[in-house]
Design a protein around this nucleic acid. Structure first.
Length: 616
RNA sequence: GCCGGCGUGGCUCAAUGGUAGAGCAACAGUUUUGUAAACUGUAGGUUACGGGUUCGAUUCCUGUCGCCGGCUCCA
């Protein structure tokens, strides 16, 4: 980033931060009883958490926005001041701002080390600063605890819009009071703001929930239940193609995996031993048997797979042993967390577990990583890498000793750095049994979620006593790696649908070629059927639109269904044996004719290459 | 689960304290079509579900379910 860009970035930050204050000012003017939480800058804008005696509604947003414009017009200067900590407690206490007092008391007690980054900026203290003094900023009638920076005055904040109001727990803890979080976006110019709003409208069109329904890929049923998607024939076809590709890559560049199959329920004993029962009991679907035993739907596959490994003595010569299984796991997610295919209760994992000796870990991670890389590259999908490690200050959340964690993370970090990619630090994002390399994706609206993952696990081998016999004839503890390339079929479908806007590459298109007979005469319909059979015989997924409609309408229908190729079939085609494929918008440039055989061969080639665009 | 919002034919949407209406889709008929929407007609709704207020509820109140935006959680 150039100096100039950096400056602009800082300026935008100051504008958004100032907007949060202006919004708070407006709210204070309109509803003097409101108590304020924190109001930081976020991607594209800002928010402020407020505790209002009467809930802020969508209608209030318009009023608040109006008031904000008045404040902008008044052009109050942002004035910085310092205050002793005790003085500040008294000052905000007198104003009834109990959340601010809460923050200040916390600061007094713990100093800066405990305050999270986001809190620190709200507290008006710098990193590593002394904590006996804080700063405040005042704009017109409103004074807030704040570190800054701000723009000079309220007139200099650019274009903004309040977006929505939602709930948020005070300090992110669900045991605390729930405040209302009011979100706004802010940009330097009106044009940039409009552009952002336009992007949001575009994102809506790519929303996988909408396209999934339009393209008839999956459905939900109130009778079946929330978070339990049902895949139609088309959706299922895509899932199977995707999985086939992943398994192909596991075979060719992943080192070779053996397929295994496990039941979907188990006695609770398995999870007591694995540690999952203790950690995730609330998230398990439990089953009482008629004989009074407790079973559970499997929420993950690793414990089952360990039992296949453990079923016989293993030699170091046989390691690594690699199992794969694409199968559903079931998690009792809280209803409010469900969201389309991004968060479901029946999750299809393209799961795999590698049982290996400690010195094989880096090589295995590298191979698994290659599979993930190659797979996503095929779709032009770029994922951000996150090194998800444990939080030493919260050891009760994890199994195993600090020492083992250090060791596992050192190994994983070495593997990541060998890859030479940029990665973010996921402190506290580890699984309870080990560190992970998570590959993060974003949905059409920019919301981030975990897709692919490689996990290093030294705890379950401990719990299940997994060993191999080494060169010296001793039993040696092994380690496990977990790896899902798509993460889950559901989450990959989200990426696939939203990245392509439903215009799937030919190898994944449920219908690859559509035949549009020009009329319903026997001669044309017979020839169309002849072609259909020919394509089908060649393994091409072909559909026929023989409705008594105009060609124009059939073309339109095929376009809306995002079929890669449409062939209009009339006398010309019947007599000459050539076709003039019409390519789906954006699929390619071809605009000519070729023989049926040549066309079929081209489609087959395109599928075999898993090409993103037409090879015509 | 929590806070806020929403729930009208398959889809997109309209209307109202007085027994719901359009377009697309579906179906039927006419047309026999040359690269993004031919014409006419028919059918389709216990207005998510249950309870209450009312002479009367789809509309107001309430409970349940579901969905949406966040929060919390995410093996």
């Amino acid at each position: 980033m150039s100096n100039h860009e950096e400056e602009q970035e800082q300026q935008l930050y100051a504008m958004r931060h100032s907007l949060a204050h202006i919004m708070a000012t407006a709210i204070q003017e309109l509803y003097p009883e409101v108590k304020f939480g924190i109001g930081p800058v976020v991607e594209h804008g800002f928010y402020y958490d407020v505790d209002a005696p009467n809930p802020i509604t969508v209608e209030d947003l318009a009023k608040i926005e109006h008031k904000m414009h008045e404040i902008v017009k008044a052009d109050f200067a942002f004035e910085r001041a310092s205050m002793q900590l005790d003085e500040a407690v008294k000052y905000f206490g007198n104003k009834g701002q109990t959340y601010k007092v809460d923050l200040l008391n916390d600061l007094k007690k713990h100093g800066t080390t405990v305050a999270k980054d986001i809190d620190r900026s709200q507290l008006g203290v710098g990193e590593g600063a002394k904590v006996d003094e804080i700063t405040t900023y005042t704009d017109g009638p409103f004074t807030d605890l704040c570190r800054g920076p701000h723009v000079e005055s309220t007139g200099k904040v650019g274009a903004f819009k309040l977006m929505r109001v939602s709930g948020a727990y005070w300090r992110g803890n669900e045991k605390n009071a729930q405040l209302q979080r009011i979100y706004g976006v802010g940009f330097t110019t009106k044009a940039e703001l409009n552009q952002h709003l336009e992007l949001l409208r575009e994102a809506e069109k790519r929303d996988h929930r909408k396209l999934g329904k339009e393209l008839d890929l999956f459905v939900f049923s109130d009778l079946v239940g929330g978070g339990l998607p049902l895949y139609t024939p088309k959706g299922t076809l895509i899932r199977e193609e995707l999985n086939r590709y992943v398994q192909e890559l596991r075979q060719t560049i992943g080192g070779g995996f053996q397929a295994v199959t496990i039941p979907h329920i188990t006695k609770k004993d398995l999870y007591e031993k694995s540690g999952h029962w203790k950690k995730f009991s609330d998230g398990l679907f439990k089953i009482e048997t008629r004989e009074g035993h407790t079973f559970a739907m499997k929420p993950m596959n690793c414990p089952h797979h360990t039992q296949i490994y453990a079923s016989q003595p293993r030699s170091y010569r046989d390691l690594p042993i690699r199992y794969r299984e694409t199968t559903m796991v079931y998690r009792d997610e809280q209803s409010g967390e469900l969201s389309g295919l991004t968060r479901v209760r029946s999750i299809t994992q393209d799961d795999a577990h590698v049982f290996a000796r400690a010195n094989q870990v880096e090589g295995e991670i590298d191979r698994l990583w290659n599979v993930i890389e190659k797979f996503n590259e095929t779709f032009g999908i770029k994922l951000k890498v996150r090194f998800s490690r444990h939080d030493p200050e919260n050891m009760e959340a994890y199994s195993g000793s600090e020492e083992n964690w250090q060791q596992a993370e050192a190994q994983m970090k070495a593997a990541i750095e060998k890859k030479g990619v940029e990665y973010t630090d996921g402190l506290g994002e580890a699984a309870f049994y080990g560190p992970k390399v998570d590959f993060m994706a974003r949905d059409a609206f920019g919301r981030e979620f975990q897709a692919a993952t490689i996990q290093l696990d030294f705890n379950q081998p401990e719990g299940f006593d997994l060993t191999c016999t080494n060169e010296s004839g001793e039993r040696e503890r092994i380690v496990m790696m977990h790896c899902a390339v798509m993460g889950s079929l559901e989450r990959f479908m989200v990426q696939l649908i939203e990245n392509t806007a439903g215009a799937f590459p030919t190898w994944l298109a449920p219908e690859q070629v559509r035949l549009a007979p020009i009329n319903e005469t026997d001669a044309i319909l017979d020839y169309t059927e002849e072609l259909r059979i020919e394509f089908e015989t060649k393994g091409i997924r072909v559909g026929v639109d023989s409705a008594p409609e105009s060609v124009g309408k059939k073309i339109r229908a095929a376009g809306l269904a995002k079929v890669p190729y449409t062939l209009v079939i009339g006398d010309k085609e019947r007599e000459s044996g050539i076709v003039s494929p019409r390519l789906r918008t954006g699929h390619g440039e071809f605009d000519g004719s070729l023989s049926v055989d040549e066309f079929a061969a081209a489609v087959q080639r395109e599928v075999a290459q898993r090409s993103q665009k037409s090879t015509l």
